[in-house]
Every structure is written in structure tokens, then in C-alpha cells.
Amino acid sequence: MTEEIIIAGFGGQGVLSMGKILAYSGVMQNKEVSWMPSYGPEMRGGTANVTVIISDERISSPILNSYDTAIILNQQSMDKFEKTVKPGGLLIYDPNGLTRLPARKDINIYSIEAADEAGKRGLAKIFNMIVLGGFLKLKPLVAPEFIHKGLEKSLPARHHVLIPENEKAIELGKELLKPVNVLN
């Protein structure tokens, strides 16, 4: 099993930390992982993205130009990454702020209204965990107990009191997921 994922959105949306929690959870489940961020001008405001690879085998290139899954959280990222999903692959997006929705018919597409729901519930800081929940519902690569361990390892100790809230957000994400285009 190898899953090649791109997570892309605005800097500050928690794109990199979502990737890190996913990657650390993979490590705790004894998978091979790589986490390759965009760094530099993008992360100083503007778009941010991270390539996460989780595999049972040694990972070759940490940098890719096509992906099994794209998790897309703004319009610039949709324009850049919709076309990079492999045929038959998966695209998850948050429609908040998007002006052009994905149109491909050869991939599975799901939407998740995470920003809207996080705003309503005052959970803006764990918006990214809602999105992660949506992804894990479709691709349960890592078991919940290892996600828990991944959160423990990724978050500084002073934030460990927030782990249950993060886990609730993941569960909420699983409920919010809506199919847009599903292949047979």
C-alpha cells in the first residue's frame, strides 16, 4: 500500500499541521512516511501545500506531480492541483470561498463544509481536523488509536488537553462529507 497525498490551501489554515498529524500517526502505526512542505515565499502568506506519502514500503521520491488524493482548501490550489489527481483518484474540497468547482468526471470528488461548520461552532482552530476526518472516512489508512498517538506526538504537551476536541472534530468531519462525483 502506498498513498500519495497533496494537501493545499492558504497559509494559516493548518495545512502543514494536518499533514504532520497524518504523517506522525502513520509513523506510530509503523508505516513509512514522508512530509514535504512548500517552504519559502508561499508560507510567508499566500498558498501553502504539503505532500504526504504513507506506505508499507521504502518511499522513493518525496516530491511528485500526480497524487492518489488531493485535499484542496482554496481556489488557487484547485486551479493548480485538480488536474494532478490520478484517474480514479480522490479529490476532497471545502467549497468555502471557491468560485470554480471541480469538473473532472474520472475521479471521485467529495465536498466538506468544514470552514462553515467550524465557524458556527467556534472551532476555527481545528478546522483542519474536520477536513482530516473527512479524508479518513474515505481512506482509513491509520487506525483511530494511532491518530490519538499522532496527536500526542505532534502537539506540544501544553496543548494535550485539546486532544479530545481534535478527535471530536475528526468525527464531525466524517459526518460532514458529501459525495459530488462518485465512480462506480
Binding site: K20, A23, V27, E32, V33, S34, W35, M36, P37, Y39, I59, P62, I63
Partner: peptide, 10 residues
């Protein structure tokens, strides 16, 4: 190089 410096792995 910058990529290996910045990327995370196990």
C-alpha cells in the same frame, strides 16, 4: 539540500 533539510521522515 533545502528539500531534505525541510522535509519530515521517520
Amino acid at each position: 539540500d533545502g528539500a531534505i533539510g525541510q522535509m519530515m521522515e521517520k
